[in-house]
Design a protein around this nucleic acid. Structure first.
Length: 297
DNA sequence: TTCCAGGGGTAGA
DNA sequence: TCTACCCATGGA
């Protein structure tokens, strides 16, 4: 089947896909030559299919040859591309700052996400205290070892919490090789599979951002950096995900060593959008960042 | 060997 | 609130 999704006028498929590094983490892949975002998707019914997502100008086209679950597919794509995110207020804000005008000018502001918050949390945990090359490797192992395979092809879905929870902590650590992150991912999967943790409720809640952040920080393996990333993906842009790259860029700009506090103070001027502003500040230097940390940009 | 990467958890001050 | 230390993993 082919599904066509009409995005809002300020939507850019290319900028959303390039908003950060997710397109390089399995089961996502990105073909720059054809502009195709690809992933093996697991539908709510359990069916598995390969999705080819492309920009057709007036609409986003999604091709899936083995299934016909339109509604489920549309919801998944909308989450991945943040198609329903209203950027008008953020873009108006950016116009007041010359250094931010490239954001509305290029329709930046949406962030590529996974179909589920579970996958986003796992992936953020896999970016902590490691190289980008290792993040990609860990993610690939997770998908290959525990994801559902697409029949006839050596491609897999991102694993469900149930699938990870079904193996012992020791076996999971052995096969996924996530280092000390393994208990965090395994524990998260168990909590979701057992019903002790309801991420859907967290995502759709009307809780204030401080409370959502508090709940994210309560998850093992999620600290200030990871929580700020996840808040961004949840459309709550008020927290800067300070990482080593943020410190590198700002120390270069200021000509001195900087602390996390310095980074927060620097971006506080862009409140309440500082998290989003930092994201597009950081990824403006995509090529350079890639050269120093193995990001294929 | 030693360091460290898109940090987090914990203890002690 | 801050600092120091350890934490698996694998590349440099």
């Amino acid at each position: 089947m082919k599904v066509e999704i009409i995005p809002p006028p300020d939507f850019s498929f290319y900028e959303t896909v390039h908003s950060h590094g997710w397109r390089h983490l399995a089961p996502y892949s990105w073909d720059e030559s054809t502009g195709t975002l690809r992933r093996v998707h697991r539908f709510a019914s359990g069916a598995v299919d390969l999705l080819d997502i492309t920009d057709e100008g007036s609409h986003v086209a999604v091709r899936a040859d083995r299934t016909s679950e339109h509604g489920d597919l549309r919801r998944a794509i909308a989450r991945m591309l943040q198609i329903d995110r209203d950027l008008a207020e953020f873009h108006r804000f950016c116009l007041d700052y010359p250094e931010l005008r490239h954001i509305p000018a290029h329709y930046k502001g949406r962030l590529l996400r996974s179909p589920t918050l579970f996958e986003d949390i796992c992936k953020v945990i896999l970016t902590t205290n490691t190289t980008w090359a290792q993040t990609k490797a860990m993610c690939s192992r997770l998908v290959t070892e525990f994801g559902d395979s697409l029949s006839g092809v050596d491609l897999h879905t991102f694993p469900t919490p149930e699938r990870i929870a079904a193996v012992s902590r020791a076996e999971f650590a052995e096969r996924a090789r996530l280092g000390y992150r393994a208990p965090a991912v395994h524990g998260l999967a168990i909590d979701i599979a057992s019903g002790a943790l309801d991420l859907d409720a967290l995502e759709t809640s009307r809780l204030d951002s401080a409370e959502v952040r508090r709940r994210l920080l309560a998850l093992r393996g999620v600290g200030p950096y990871a929580a700020a990333c996840l808040m961004l993906y949840l459309g709550r842009p008020g927290y800067v995900n300070v990482d080593s790259w943020a410190r590198t860029l700002l120390s270069r700009e200021l000509g001195r060593a900087v602390t996390d506090r310095d980074v927060h103070d620097h971006f506080a001027r862009y409140a309440p959008w500082q998290g989003l502003v930092y994201n597009f500040y950081a990824w403006n230097h995509d090529e350079e960042r890639g050269a120093s940390s193995d990001v294929a940009s």
